[in-house]
Design a protein around this nucleic acid. Structure first.
Lengths: 199, 199
DNA sequence: GCGATCAATGTTAGTGACTAACATTAGCGG
DNA sequence: CCGCTAATGTTAGTCACTAACATTGATCGC
């Protein structure tokens, strides 16, 4: 539930109401603690204790400590939007146009929640990499689509990595400054990719 | 000593001959063990034991296990090359042109060593992020240069993130396939950024 | 209601990366 | 050869994370 899951695809876990409640409680507790003590200053033991469960239970609901912030299920919407772009475009343009379209087509459900999370990630050096890793599946999906339309794999990977990196930069810039708007930042990022941004 | 240290800038540590020898022994031992048992299958205790030192000594020479593979000191050459590009170009073009020039200007001392390391990093999911983190200082340097030439900071960060991401993709693609040449891969990456790459 | 069942949680014990504090050794200059 | 300091060793810890097994609790057939 961060940024590459644009349309709100949910986890396939067949969860009971109790489990879902526990997960939600852990998630909320964790984010609050991160904001107060910082990510590194918050231990998984603290999160579990504050949520009233054992540490083991924390790891049953989240793959890792990072997993509290990053666990986007793969969202096919992005890949579909890219597939819809003309194959005649240079790959990087095709990806940027696709992402532009994907973002324009939706409206994020709870923008402020996302902003809080991205802010934590953007201000913690060790988490910047995690944000990137969270997009791995999305990158793979984009690459697969480009390749199936005839783009050589290395080229496809370079193009998607570049665009997703610019997008990530846009997200962290947006999260860091409350006066900015997500749409505007993303638009700037795609403009940068398209070489349309000057100076 | 990986990829963002193009001109061989060395660490500023005032090292004795003995310490340098120990460091080199640990480094070589570690890479060999990584290649045999995989990165995750190699413990720091194994590395230390194989090198004939205590585990503590390992961490005195390397910040972390990842640090064995990634510890590029910041290389000002790249930033200089970017600074030399015309300020009239769109930021992303300026960065790609600068990196193109930087890579053309040098020849990597021991290409095969680099390839071994990048291969380990590229084939270990948890290390892909580390490669990226290793370039943080370089990214910051590029951003600083662009900003001092009038580019707004968010734009500068989007542009450098995008180009470095494409470059990283080129490096992993090169390392994964022994029949490819580094220069050709990098050239392709910059072509992708410039939108010159078709299909 | 009542027990059975299975998911959800707890407990315990461990591994591996990494740190801090303090003790020891080894090589160099005098 | 002595002493000094850098380099290394030892010990004892913290924290993220895992495995194996025990326990609770909600829901379902009855």
């Amino acid at each position: 539930m961060l940024v590459t899951n644009i349309s709100g695809v949910s986890h396939p876990k067949p969860v009971s109401a109790r489990a879902e409640a526990t997960r939600a409680r852990l998630e909320a507790t964790a984010v609050e603690l991160f904001e107060v003590h910082g990510y590194e200053g918050t231990t998984t033991a603290m999160i579990a204790a504050s949520a009233g469960v054992s540490e083991m239970t924390f790891f049953r609901h989240f793959r890792s400590k990072e997993g509290v912030l990053f666990d986007d299920p793969y969202d096919p919407l992005i890949v579909q939007a890219i597939a819809a772009q003309p194959t005649g475009l240079p790959p990087i343009r095709r990806v940027s146009a696709g992402l532009r379209a994907a973002w324009a087509a939706i409206s994020l459900p709870d923008v402020e929640t996302v902003r809080r999370r991205v802010r934590i990630a953007g201000t913690t050096p060790s988490l910047r990499a995690g944000m990137w890793a969270n997009m791995a599946r999305t990158e793979d999906g984009i690459v697969e689509q480009l390749v199936s339309d005839g783009t050589p794999e290395p080229i496809a990977r370079m193009a998607s990595a570049a665009v997703l990196a610019a997008m990530t930069a846009a997200l962290t810039a947006w999260a860091a400054d409350d006066s900015t708007m997500l749409g505007a930042m993303l638009s700037q990022a795609f403009d940068v990719i398209d070489g349309a941004s000057r100076a």
